[in-house]
Design a protein around this nucleic acid. Sequence first.
DNA 1: TATTGTTATACTCTATAACTATA
DNA 2: TATAGTTATAGAGTATAACAATA
Lengths: 171, 171
Amino acid sequence: MKSATEKQQAAKEPPNGESGKRRKSVAAPREQKLQLGVLNGHLGYFVRRLQVAIFKDIIRVLAPMKVRPAQYSVLVLVDSNPGRSQAAIGRALGIERARLARLLHDLQRRKWIERRAAAGDRRSHSLFLTGEGEKALVRIKKLAASHEAKLAEAVGLKRRILLMDLLRDFG
Amino acid sequence: MKSATEKQQAAKEPPNGESGKRRKSVAAPREQKLQLGVLNGHLGYFVRRLQVAIFKDIIRVLAPMKVRPAQYSVLVLVDSNPGRSQAAIGRALGIERARLARLLHDLQRRKWIERRAAAGDRRSHSLFLTGEGEKALVRIKKLAASHEAKLAEAVGLKRRILLMDLLRDFG
DNA sequence: TATTGTTATACTCTATAACTATA
DNA sequence: TATAGTTATAGAGTATAACAATA
């Protein structure tokens, strides 16, 4: 079976098909879809488009709690791994320690996380959610869940499971 | 059949298993893998991770030509759709017109693109590659192709086709 | 009034470097 | 010497707003 990938990559019609149809209303110039050229062969292009679309929604959904996606992921990881160091959290999420320091400063200012001196190593800080932080995270998770439900519907349940299983191998 | 998604979401062991094993060398503290918690249920989390990994590589690969991914995509679209306006290119790629204006200013400074007055509408600029731009794009495409080949190998050919087919529906 | 393109501003994210205090 | 965390800076990307020219 020929995949859609091969089919679309093989498609090489000339860019425009101005055939004078479609002139119902005066407004609405109705742009032609542009040719993507070799972008059709780049997985990164499509992954990027999906990522941007998903993040636009999650950013909008979390906005009422004034939380950005990176902050959300840090709250979740601290909640799921209490007592771990900044270095460990940063490594797990791919967040630079410099950026994580500022991000945590903000979360601490909001009284959502605590930094205690680590037991064995006095250089490192053990991270915990405060009671307030836990309550906030419950609300944030509800918002995130509504985003995910909407996304699942848009993507299709089967396709979503398939995608998750495919993507998870790149931890 | 239970998908890996469901399996991983069901996993809820306590975060640490510090059982004092694994003390071969003095260095290498060997961090535990942290629990991802509800991030396991977010498609966006995994899409984001893959996108970041892919872009790290393409950015590195294109660096010798001093081209960023967004510039590459613009060059490809202008090449595949000569004469189109900035608005059309920007819409197709999801680039804000304000940002595209500066991006094109840079490409024009490098003599890779031309902006001519549009025929029908004197507000808009028709975009074209220069001869130099076409030659540069040939070299850039070769670099991008080497990135894609490496990526295809890492992802696996079958999985890549599958992913492309799944993702393409979000144009 | 709306659209095209431009300039400017502010914010987020990323990437470094320099610094301290510990190990 | 290396690591944990902090502060600072610069660049890219994103989101707005304001503006001139044109439709």
